[in-house]
Design a protein around this nucleic acid. Structure first.
Lengths: 266, 266
DNA sequence: CGTGGGGTTGACAACCTTCAATAACTGTGG
DNA sequence: CCACAGTTATTGAAGGTTGTCAACCCCACG
């Protein structure tokens, strides 16, 4: 198979942005002109430090990463996963400095979008700016879902829900097929994501394997029974705001997509 | 004391937006022209329904509210609190439909900002649009902190942290003085916010009263020992992005505020 | 004066954590 | 190719934090 290029990452980003409003060729060009230096990271390497201002945003081109907060006593809470096409430190662009760190899961390649150039492009292309705003809104929606997951659900449900999210998101960017995908996550990391101890994660995963729900082993995630897993986690993909999700509220409900449409915008 | 008017709510919103970049008089005028119909709600009344598209955004003028998700079995997870000057359903503006509901705590008055007019104003004033983007980014930052709170901390810490957040935010809009503020929250609701049972909230609060940390009774919140409470909750107000917080990263770190400044934007 | 919601308290159970030990796996160097 | 070390996965036992159930009190309100 051919190697993954920066353009692949950019293309995925453009596709995501295109969910808000169809991008003009000018806007696409502005995007394409952004990528600068490439970077590569090994497993567990820190891609963004929690409190150090950055010179540019990193577009994830290949591999997976997670955003997290390190707590005083050494434990950590993972705040979300980053997939190819995601911008690793988007909040930085608006807030001025990162309030959480980003770490690579497995081998990762990124491309740096210089902050100055990006800010200029967003200034020149307001629709692009709105699309980026939409990105942070979707991000917030996912975080809210995680809050519900961690706050409300049992261990079994939490893990099921998270596995569903990972698979659905990977599938939407073409990185998952036939209920299988690569996702190199240790049980400890999974625990940090859903706020459970590694030991309990282990028991939960084994239970899921035995009952034929899902399997996560050797860097691979496999949904053995997709619908059962979805039910077990109370998973409704609407919050991911993916295309063609079949949610009754998805189509054309964005104010700037359906200008002058039924919700009175424009 | 004089009654609270819509202008108070608008003024608070303008102040918040002004943290990103100083608003021009034109931009302020555009804001001032927005408010439409007023609405009033009683305690526990639903202000925004979870899945019904809305015609406009509600600016909270007086009183308090909470955003929450209702789960199939009747329990709920509160996702955040809304204070005067906050926009109740900001995410709707970008995402097209609310993915969570909003409920009044106590008596609430709001003013409706018509979606069409707001969208037009943001189109005409890009800096205003950026400021609104900043609002959703801050919102996301707070949600991330809640995720850490619920995922990581013990019951005692969680409650302490939440009380700190509420007090700090209220103080920043002038609604708290001398370690006291009004905040009408039942113990059940507090439990829904930090993902603990009402019974356990009760024990935790009583413990805090006995040990002289804080008191929450009769709709009033009182921090008996501000620093001890802060320490007990591991509370660092930086994530709230309030003015004059003393965070080393706060001043001028926003890309559009310090144009051409040290981080290379502009 | 009755009623209902919220607060308080106790007993008990459940879920999950921690500790600890072992097994499986990965990459490295001899 | 094997031995080795370090990490990850697995398993058992014990304990703690928190949830559930149930009762009671208090107060506001009609």
């Amino acid at each position: 198979m051919r190697s993954v290029t920066i353009n692949d990452g950019l293309e995925r980003l453009a596709q995501k942005l295109g969910r808000v409003c169809t991008l003009t060729s000018e806007e696409r060009l502005a995007l394409a002109g952004l990528p600068g230096a490439e970077r590569a990271f090994g497993p567990r390497e820190e891609m963004v430090a929690q409190h150090r201002p950055t010179d540019g945003l990193q577009l994830l081109v290949e591999g997976f990463a997670c955003r997290f907060r390190l707590l005083p006593d050494g434990r950590r809470q993972i705040l979300g996963f980053l997939l190819p096409g995601d911008i690793c430190d988007l909040s930085t662009l608006v807030l001025g400095h990162p309030d959480h760190a980003v770490s690579a899961l497995g081998v990762v390649r990124t491309s740096v979008l210089p902050a100055a150039a990006l800010a200029a492009a967003l200034e020149r292309h307001p629709r692009l700016a709105r699309a980026f705003w939409w990105l942070t809104a979707v991000d917030a929606a996912i975080t809210r879902e995680w809050l519900v997951n961690v706050g409300y659900r049992s261990a079994h449900e939490r893990v099921a829900h998270l596995l569903c999210e990972v698979y659905w998101r990977l599938e939407s960017v073409g990185l998952a097929h036939d209920n299988q995908c690569r996702f190199p996550l240790t049980q400890t990391e999974l625990g940090d994501a859903v706020a459970l101890s590694a030991v309990h994660i282990n028991r939960t995963l084994m239970n899921m394997r035995r009952t034929g729900l899902a399997r996560m082993q050797g860097g691979m995630l496999e949904l053995l029974d997709r619908h059962a897993l979805q039910a077990a986690g109370g998973f409704d993909p609407a919050y991911l705001h993916l295309p063609s999700v079949g949610s009754p509220f998805h189509a054309g409900a964005s104010p700037w997509k359906a200008q002058g449409a039924r919700n009175g915008f424009g």
